[in-house]
């Protein structure tokens, strides 16, 4: 048992850590978020036992919806075994005693930072995003009083000017992640810092999407089957990142790849960012061009060892 686990055992903490009053407050905010897709609902975010920036918003949302029969998948950068994913998964194992999984299809609740699984999510799933800056207009207008007015008036001119300036300067829109979207033809929303590659997945997604920003004290949501449009211009349509090569380990195409530096001589490979997707494919016999490379094997194999707990 880790030190952290012992600390939780010492204290008398409620199921999923939060007290019931806090859960009710968060639950009410979630319902409003669902009823007003893309609108950021203010909520009295609590201090959590992990720092702001580590996913306190996502953790609070997950803690508020989680039941004892849920099965939780926790990912960071698309992977189940990155340090913070391990830490947050452990938090819920300790405080809620619920089942956890690496398998996307087995999970009823998926909490994520920066990625959406490659596999299509289903009607029975909820995906919870950790959000650092929920306000899509924040970097154009730092004042909350102003951005709130803009949302109220549906005045998104500033955002279009910014995107257009990108095009004028670069010939294309120079936003690669946290790419703004318009939800249900009304609210401009920040899809959290997922690469824009994932934007098409949140359009008409079968699963319910909940977004939690702890430090900024906002919750927002996209119900299933909701129109989500990435902002663009008729002559400069939205497009996602494309990778020239398939995943070096499993050979998958049309997935998001991480670049892994193999040595100090320029050796590198591109592998699936969604580690569970990659492992399932390899288990099913798919082989990528570098699957036999010893360095690659070491990288691809590390998470499986961890799975065997």
């Amino acid at each position: 048992m880790s030190d952290t686990a012992e600390n939780y055992d010492q204290g008398e903490y409620n199921f999923a850590y939060l007290d019931e009053q806090t859960k009710r407050m968060i639950r009410r905010a979630i319902l409003k978020g669902i009823a007003i897709p893309g609108y950021q609902v203010p909520f009295a975010s609590r201090e959590m036992p992990m720092p702001y920036g580590w996913g306190t918003g996502g953790v609070q949302v997950t803690a508020a919806i989680l039941g004892k029969d849920d099965c939780l998948k926790m990912i960071d950068q698309g992977s189940d075994d990155t340090t913070n994913a391990v830490s947050l998964r452990g938090f819920f194992e300790k405080t809620a005693g619920i089942r956890t999984t690496y398998e996307t299809s087995e999970a009823t609740v998926i909490q994520t930072r920066h990625r959406i699984p490659e596999k299509d999510l289903t009607d029975d799933q909820v995906i919870v995003f950790q959000v650092p800056i929920p306000e899509p207009l924040r970097f154009l207008e730092p004042r909350e009083t102003e951005t709130r007015k803009m949302h109220a008036l549906e005045d998104y001119g500033l955002m279009h000017v910014k995107l257009y300036e990108d095009i004028a300067k670069n010939g294309h829109i120079a936003t690669t992640y946290a790419y703004p979207v318009k939800v249900n033809d009304r609210y401009v929303m920040d899809p959290s810092p997922t690469p824009k590659f994932d934007n098409p997945k949140i359009d008409e997604m079968a699963a319910l999407q909940l977004y939690g920003a702890g430090r900024e004290k906002r919750i927002y949501a996209i119900p299933p089957y909701t129109k989500v449009k990435s902002l663009d211009f008729e002559d400069y349509p939205f497009e996602v990142q494309k990778f020239d090569k398939p995943c070096a380990l499993c050979g998958a195409r049309n997935v998001y790849l991480d670049e892994v530096i193999l040595d100090d001589r320029g050796g590198r490979m591109f592998v699936c960012s969604d580690s569970n997707f990659c492992e399932e494919r390899r288990a099913a016999g798919h082989v990528g061009p570098m699957a036999a490379d010893p360095a690659a094997v070491q990288i691809g194999g590390s998470s499986q060892e961890e799975t065997a707990r």
Binding site: E47, Y52, Y256, S273
Partner: peptide, 24 residues
């Protein structure tokens, strides 16, 4: 508490977004 969290969270992996920026 908020400030230190957000400043220090830059220590967390950001390689997915960095990949997108590399590409750009």
């Amino acid at each position: 508490i908020q400030a230190t969290g957000f400043v220090e969270h830059l220590k967390l992996p950001h390689y997915v977004d960095f990949q997108a920026e590399l590409d750009l």
